[in-house]
Design a protein around this nucleic acid. Structure first.
Lengths: 201, 201
DNA sequence: TGTACATCAGTGAACGCGCGTTCACTGATGTAC
DNA sequence: TGTACATCAGTGAACGCGCGTTCACTGATGTAC
């Protein structure tokens, strides 16, 4: 019996992530998490105010994971002779990565977007700019303007249709009516959406 | 005490809808619903196999409501001299209606897309064509081709980017990181997305 | 037309479950003198 | 350097809750003779 655990907060977040991975946000309960971390069921109260606080923390972690994959896929785009082409490739890579994450880790994806119950909102002035996936997508569009392949006049607000499209197809495929779509058809649908993100700008 | 209720199944669905309207799918429980219908907690078993069966039924009803609003907004589009313009207006109307419903009735919207737990899937051969909102959107795009403003070569699969965009912005606004967006900004974002649906085709 | 009876929609009590949260506690750690 | 003590991270028992589901039942309805 070791009393001071070392880093119980981290251990709880890891356990919560494992549960969320298969069960989504609903699987993140105080009792379930502490059980998984092999610790008494109220030990978590030393590190989190309550259940929602824990869920919020693991949700943020899932959001980071999504952003990490997008960032990785962006970094894998190799530069060619045409900067405009590169900029487009980066946008597509970001869009694909978004959907790739949702399909590969549906539990984490759902947890990332699990809303805290109304009233518990951390009083944020900038609600969306904090979401790194949004920022990465936005920066990819900035890249289009910088490369001269998107008129600056079309830039303002252009990230919203892009975000909506990839987020929409991701949720439709993961949770929604498209959830039992077969692999090949699914890939074609995703490709359709991602390319439409480009033409939509 | 009236024993034979008349149409308890319908009464239960109405009660469930009322609960879902404010509380979303999680608010649809056997005990909560039967309590709201002022009936003993296991009376529901005469009409539904179990809790998931009830949820599925109310979910379908919510989906119909979404489709009803889209159909209504479509029927309100008045025909002008230019059939091509009309076809575009119909597509935009459908897209707006989709988001309008989600924002006006977030609980119903979430319930409509509440997935039955895996394994409980009714073994459907055509998973998506049954969703009326999808069909209405799809038919609006057919209208573009019929009016000659969209090349037939671009038609196949064009409904997916359109659906994804409106569904995506709807969920981001209702449940997601954009949920605390202010009214005016919100309207602009929705407009951005809906028009991008058009240019994306 | 009246009566016996099957059907079946609803009742009410009880089951076991997992949950979040609170309480008084224990015992290891680190600090002050 | 050694000891007294405060701190604080974890324990374990207990609370009340709402849930889904099962059981044996009751009593109204409709049908057959």
């Amino acid at each position: 019996l070791t009393y001071h655990h070392g880093d119980l907060r981290e251990a709880l977040l890891v356990a919560a992530s494992t549960l969320a991975r298969t069960g989504g946000p609903d699987a993140v309960g105080l009792r379930a998490v502490t059980r998984a971390a092999e610790v008494s069921h109220n030990a978590a109260y030393r590190h989190f105010a309550d259940r929602d606080d824990l869920l919020l923390a693991v949700s943020e972690r899932c959001m980071e994971r999504l952003a990490d994959l997008i960032a990785r896929r962006l970094s894998e785009v190799e530069a060619g002779p045409d900067p405009g082409r590169d900029a487009w490739n980066r946008l597509y890579a970001a869009g694909y990565a978004y959907v790739e994450f949702a399909l590969a880790e549906p539990g984490w994806f759902r947890t990332a977007f699990a809303a805290p119950p109304p009233g518990r909102l951390p009083d944020l002035g900038a609600p969306l700019t904090d979401a790194r996936p949004y920022r990465l997508l936005s920066e990819a569009i900035d890249g289009l303007v910088a490369a001269g392949v998107l008129p600056a006049s079309r830039r303002p607000g252009a990230e919203f249709p892009a975000w909506a499209a990839v987020h929409g197809i991701a949720t439709l495929l993961v949770d929604g009516p498209l959830r039992l779509l077969d692999g090949d058809v699914r890939d074609q649908v995703v490709a359709k959406v991602v390319t439409a993100v480009g033409t939509g700008l």
